[in-house]
Design a protein around this nucleic acid. Sequence first.
DNA 1: AGGTAATATGCGCCCATAGTAATATAAGAG
DNA 2: CTCTTATATTACTATGGGCGCATATTACCT
Lengths: 122, 122
Amino acid sequence: MARAATTINQIDRIFRAFANRSRLRILYLLQRGEMCVGDVHTILDLPQPRASRHLAYLRKAGLVQVRRAGQWSYYSLATPGTPFHQKLVECLGCCFAEVPEFKADEARARKLKKFGGCCPQK
Amino acid sequence: MARAATTINQIDRIFRAFANRSRLRILYLLQRGEMCVGDVHTILDLPQPRASRHLAYLRKAGLVQVRRAGQWSYYSLATPGTPFHQKLVECLGCCFAEVPEFKADEARARKLKKFGGCCPQK
DNA sequence: AGGTAATATGCGCCCATAGTAATATAAGAG
DNA sequence: CTCTTATATTACTATGGGCGCATATTACCT
């Protein structure tokens, strides 16, 4: 793990990235592993441009990374580069399972996985 | 510690409360203990209405609590009611000490304490 | 009551950003 | 090349929220 975040700008940026419901749901979802934009779009029932834009936002904030393969973009949680980032991701993991909306998202994620998403898996 | 937060609304609200620089500085500062509005105002060099507003915002989000005594309002960090809240507060504690702005705020806090703030201490 | 200090709030302006809809780009498939 | 699918981006609107300024409220003192 790298050193602590050094500027309040970074801290600010990361917190703002968490301060939106669509992005929270996306982040929570990505804990299950990488996922293409279309599957995020389908599972969370967000308009495709919205999913794409928020994923781009999260990428710019350093919270997710992207792997492009053919016509698909696979997004996944970025490895935390600071203890601060690490703790923040833990917030996602340790507490959200009891939140109904997240449980519903997870259920849809499992169902989609069973029938296969819109993209080939790695 | 109470049960996990149950609605995405609460989660959302708490994250939004962290998504502002003035509020981050206030939260960081309050880790040192309770403080009256005037001292927050002085230490962080924020206009008084701004300090007051953000403190009220944090109170509504459940992140700080207020104790009124005479003409003073003493604010302090609220005891986390959820594991989620707990982890989030840890983010404040574990990583921010290396951020220059926070260090500067702390220095001013120590100095003010030495000469006495604008209010009687408990 | 009148004065002062501490805190809270109402109001207006402005900017950042979320959202929608339409479209552009890019990568296969045939 | 054309068609389709996946993703990204542009243009526009709406709105939430931050900020400053002035003022209200509250408490205490004389």
